[in-house]
Structure formats: C-alpha cells, structure tokens
Nucleic acid binder design. Structure first.
Lengths: 388, 388
DNA sequence: AGAATAGTGTCTATGAGACAGTATATG
DNA sequence: CATATACTGTCTCATAGACACTATTCT
C-alpha cells in the first residue's frame, strides 16, 4: 500500500537536438528544404520532412516519394506526428506569413502539447500568441539552440486522458469465489477475458459510470454495494492511448442469471483463480493487477464491515455466512466460535425463526442481514501465532 | 467507504451535458446558430458560440458583439478555448465539408486533447481520421448522448479529462497536526489555499506526477512515504473543465523549512482544523473533502502500519511517537501501556542507547525506526466500550 | 524536596480459540 | 441405528488496560 520511493537518478547523456519542420510543403518546398539543410549541417536531427521529392503536388495534403502509395492521408499524417512529437522543437516555415489548413491543424496539435515552436515569419491571421524571440531564421535558431538560450515553450505539456471505470464484481457460487468477466469482442485483446467497464460519458462522474456499467451487466446494479478501489495510470497500460482507469469493487449475492449481452460481449461468472494475476496474459490489459487488489480489499472489508452478508441471498444461515469468510480468506473457521461471534454483534444478523431443511443434519435457522455496516470489534482473521 | 446506493433517481443528479460548436462562423453562421438551438432545446449547455450577432465579418477571425473591442485575437481565442475545453464534446458545423484555417487550428488542439468530436459533414482535405459514427446531425447527436436508440450508427461520446495529482502532505509541528497548503496565484480560486498538485505530463503515471510535485514542494520528496487515496471526478468539481484528480497522502517528519516558491505560489504548513472540511469555502475546489479523507486514512494507517515513525525525526523518543498517535487520533493514551506495546513489536523501534535531556524529568531514550512496515497485531485505537 | 517525565512490574477483565456436549435432521 | 450438521456451555490462554512503583532529571 504505502510505497517507499526507490532511489533512481534520471540524469542521462545529452543527445543531438532534433527538429521537425512544418509548413506548406506544396508552396514553399524550396524554403523548407533549405531550412532543413541548415539544421542538418549544424548536426541536428531533422525528423521531418524527408529530403526526397514530392508527389501529388496538386492536392491539399502533399505526399513524399517515400510515402507508401496506398495508405490513407491520416495514416501518413500519424507517422509525421510521431516524428514531430519525438522532436525537441518545431520550426514553422512560412515565408509569406500564411499557413495552410493542414499546417494550422498540425500547429494546433503541437501547441496543445506544449512543444517549443519557432517561426520563420510572424504567422498571419491565426489567433495564436507569438512569444517574443520565437520568430527567427533557421541560422539564428541553430545558434540559439547551441547557445541554449531557448525562450519557448510557454506552457508545460499536459496529458489528456480518457477516464474509464472498471468493476470487479465478486460473488460466491457453488461455495467458490467467482468474478464477472466479459469476453472482449474488439481489439485490443479481442477474445481475451476482461473486467466489465467503460468510458465516462458526458455529465458522469466515475461513480456514475461504474454504477451504469454494473446496471448493464447485472440486473440489480442499483442495489449492490460498490466501492472505489484504485486508479491505474501507467502510460502504456492501454495500447489505444492514454486511458486511465479507476477500479471499483462490487459485491453480489448468488445471481443465477446474468443479463444478456451488451456491446456484443458476453458476461460470465468465472471462478477466481490465482493464475489470473500470476499470469499477466490471462486477462486483458492490467486487469490481473486490478483483480488482485480487489481481492485484497475484499479480505479487509470482511474484517471490518458486514459486507459478507451481501454475498448471501436474502435469507441465509450462519453456515452460509461462514462459508463466505472461508472462501475469501482461504481458511477454515471454527463453526462454534464463528456462530457465537456473529450473533453477539448487534445488527449484523437478525433471526427470522424460520428453518432451512432438506439437507442432511439439523435444520439451520435462517437469518437476514441487520442494519449494521461496520464491525467493531472486527472479525479477526486467523493468523500465525508468534512462536515463543 | 463502501457506498450503499441511495434510492434517488439520477436523472436529476446528473449534470447537463455541455457542448461547444466550432466551424466557420463567418460563412455558416445561420447553420451554427440552428445547431446551437437544437442542443439548447434538449437542455444541453452550449458553451460556445454565444447567441449574439457577429462583428467584423470581413476578417478571417470573426468576433461577436459581446467580445471586448480592444483585446487581441488570441486573447479572445483563449477564452473560446476555455469554453471548448470545459465542454463534454465538440460539434463541428461544416455544411460544405470544408474547414477554415482557424477551425483547423482549433480542431488540432481539440483532438490533441482527446476530446470527443462530431461533424455535420465529413471534413474534406484534412488528414484526420473520422471514426465511424461521428458524422451526424445535431438532432441525432442529441439522441445519441441521451442514450436513445438510433437508426444510424453513432459513437457514444467519451469524455476526455486532464488527470491531475493532488497531495496531502501531513506533518506534526509543535505537537499539532499540520498540512502543506499553497496560496493559489491564478484563477480559479486565486488567493485561496489549496493542496499542492499538478497535471500529469507526458510519460508520467499519476504516481510519477505526485512524486514530482512532492519533490518540488518539500526538498525530501524522494524519501517520503506516499499512498494513493481516492480519485475525485465530479463533472463540476473544477470550473476550468473536466479535470479528474487523484489524491495522494504523504507523511513528512517535522521539516522546519519548506523549499521556496514554485509557480509563484508560496507553500506553508497550516494547522489542520475541522473547518477546513466543514466549511467548503475554506479551501479551493473540493480540497476540503480530500483533506478529510486523507485524515481518515492516516488514522487507519496508524493502526496497521509503522508510519507514525515517519512523522518523527530520525531519532525520537517513545513520547514523541505517542504524541503522533494522540494528535492524529485525537485521544490521550496511557504512556506506560503505549511504551510496552511499541517496544514489544519487533522491528518498529530500535534503541540507540542515547538519551535526550535538557527537558524536565528523566531523560528519555532515543530510538530510530526499525525495518517493520506493518503492525500485526495492530495498535488498538481506544473506542467506546459496549455499555452492558 | 518537589515536580515532571521515563520506564517497569503486576493485577484484572475481556475475548478468542479449543472442545466437550447437546439438539435435530436424513438414510 | 449411524452420520451429519446446528448450536450451547465452559475452560484456557493471550493481551489490553489500569495502576502502583521505581528511576532520573530540573527547579
């Protein structure tokens, strides 16, 4: 839980400066190439444009001879953006001041990222703030970078993310712990099992999203307990881009039927199994980590709250309740002492004076859950005694 | 912690979706206004454009009658971006397909931010990937957001958010609990006290961001304990737009000096006081809620872990440690029993055989913290005895 | 000496765990 | 009847809390 920091240093060797050039390659290709040669001569890495001839000069979006023929414009543009975003700064070649629509679009993305941008001429007719000292020739810019007196960027780059909510819905079926998983119908991880979840929609909080997904997956989402667990934000956790997920834990009684498919994905109860987090490839994304954390949380919740009763049907016996503790804690408990402890806690279970029979042995009394939420003192989880 | 669903319908509780319209207002003002009226009629908040006449129709960058006369174009544009970025999604009104340069630039910034974007027509001649189901009429878009069934495929809007990390840094000074707060130098909440925090930057996880901020605010960020607490995502929690914050808890020993200002904001230790969360206006944003939750968490951590020692200087007495528990739990503890309990736990405190004197009374032995992280059995917090 | 703080020894009440024993069903 | 499960009563042992008592400093 509480993390102690590691002592890594992040001082790395300095690389050659890299630059990306943008501007209307169609209209000003000669100027662009000339500027690129100035940077290259100074030892800079010129990430884009490639120094090869143009193709399809009559279209708005120009291509180079090295570009693949069949790709869509936006695929080529994606590759260009990779080059631009991995550069140290951007130089806008606009000899007449004007920028085309594609360059305007690129500039929007570049500025939103907070990158350092320099201009050959003050851009005309675009509502952009031009910081002082950012309009200069390629030669001056080289001198400036080598002298390390860069004035841009104006803003620290911020990362935008798509927030999602994933839910670990636990239940007990056939005396074993089960979790609700869906089979993914789309890439990435198509065909893999994953936790149910989804993107936050307009006007929703993460809790709203989680409750909506719960409602979609189980038909009694509105009545289930739910708790926020943890937020997972590793930059590479989702191959689709920056997706930050907040995990929720929900606890369900034994539901025999799960509502039908949503989003062409089937939801199923799957027995919880240690390989789900031991083997990271068992579940999609980092859902193994999420599940492990959910289980740890459930164990603690059982100690301090009355949630165990939420795993049980409306009427349950003390044995049913004990089984919940045994399955989630992975222990066996003394039935006599468990009985005494549970019945002593005020408001945990309420006798109904009905009995359940049909099984072997003395019929057990049925209880329903009481109003108590917290266990004080907590249920003690058997632990290793201190050896004397 | 565990939330039982309340019986309220969330049709009322949910915030109204908000939309920003972009496009060439100069050429297609009538269409823009018509679309805006569709959204407004459905109860959506239309953040931009304002429904007032235009001015300076002959220039590339158009202005509205409500815009201030003397401002520079880019200042007006900044205000527009604030409105766009605080919307849930964007609708591009481009009846003929083409986008102007200003709209292209705006679109670049909007897409780089990961916002959900819809188009009236497929944009022509811009290298943008148009996801399936994002070209549709304003009426269809309204229906899609409201979750109604559509004949045409429509992609449900996903909300993009800026993730931030806020840190509650607790310490004990002069035998009182203190929290590190900054005075905000910018709007919103200029001049108000707030928790230190900041935006996630490229390549960072939330934990990286929190650790960096901690480092910036205290000069020993690298060595402090830190734990993720909770993620706050209410749509209206930040007036600047969709900002989802993850709160962290850090625990510091008594630092006499805090590193100087960063971002023109001074950081100061402030004594923790119940009014900070009782009165929501005391702290900026929802930082009162965050602080309350941090304090609850700190109380639990003291029970089950050895973090209390992290509040103390490198060498400390048992009394120092006891004071930590007393201050954070808000109780008085029996000194004798506390002493026995702490010294019995293996690896909590290690005697140094040095003594501290200079005060009244018998000099106390100095200890340093041991390797143990967890307390098992936990420190018991005095609680109300069951009345018989 | 007296006050103040540190630290030790010891008694007691509580409650968890072990387990014997009783109750009541099925086959 | 045996067997299985449900439930009760009682003993034991660990330990949290109370508190008397000793130790060592300052005023």
């Amino acid at each position: 839980m509480m993390s102690r920091p590691t002592g890594d240093d992040r001082s790395t060797a300095k690389a050659r400066p890299s630059v990306a050039l943008i501007g209307s390659f169609r209209q000003h290709f000669a100027e662009v190439r000339r500027a690129a040669e100035v940077f290259a001569a100074a030892g800079f890495t010129v990430r884009t444009p490639p120094l090869v001839p143009l193709r399809d000069v009559d279209r708005e979006f120009v291509r180079f001879e090295t570009d693949p023929h069949l790709s869509l414009d936006h695929h080529i543009q994606d590759i260009t953006f990779d080059k631009i975003f991995s550069s140290d700064f951007v130089y806008v070649v606009n000899p007449d001041g004007y920028l085309g629509r594609t360059t305007s679009y690129e500039l929007g993305r570049i500025l939103e990222r907070g990158m350092a941008v320099y201009y050959a001429e003050p851009p005309k007719d675009l509502p952009i703030e031009i910081a002082e000292g950012t309009v200069l020739s390629a030669d001056d810019l080289v001198a400036c970078v080598l002298g390390e007196v860069l004035t841009a960027p104006a803003r620290r780059p911020r990362v935008a993310a798509l927030p999602t909510a994933d839910i670990v819905i636990l239940t007990i079926r056939d005396r074993e712990l089960h979790v609700l998983l869906i089979k993914r119908g789309k890439d990435p991880f198509r065909g893999k099992s994953a936790l149910p979840g989804g993107f936050v929609r307009p006007g929703e909080s993460l809790e709203d999203t989680a409750r909506r997904e719960l409602e979609e997956e189980t038909n009694l989402g509105g009545s289930l307990l739910m708790e926020q667990l943890h937020t997972f934000s590793e930059p590479e956790r989702d191959p689709r881009g920056r997706i930050v997920t907040t995990a929720f834990l929900a606890i369900a009684p034994d539901l025999s039927d799960v509502r039908g498919a949503s989003d062409a994905a089937r939801a199923d109860w799957v027995e919880v199994d240690e390989s789900m987090w031991r083997d990271p490839a068992r579940l999609a994304f980092d859902h193994g980590d999420i599940l492990r954390r959910a289980l740890e949380r459930a164990r603690v919740l059982l100690e301090h709250t009355t949630v165990a009763a939420d795993f049980c049907p409306r009427r349950f016996t003390i044995s049913d309740l004990r089984k919940v503790y045994e399955v989630i804690w992975g222990v066996t408990l003394n039935p006599q002492n468990f009985q005494r402890k549970v019945r002593e806690v005020k408001g945990f279970v309420i006798p109904t004076h009905e009995r359940r029979d049909g099984r072997q042995g003395r019929p057990a009394e049925l209880f329903r859950r009481g109003p108590a939420e917290h266990l004080d003192p907590p249920m003690l989880r058997p632990r290793q005694r201190n050896s004397p």
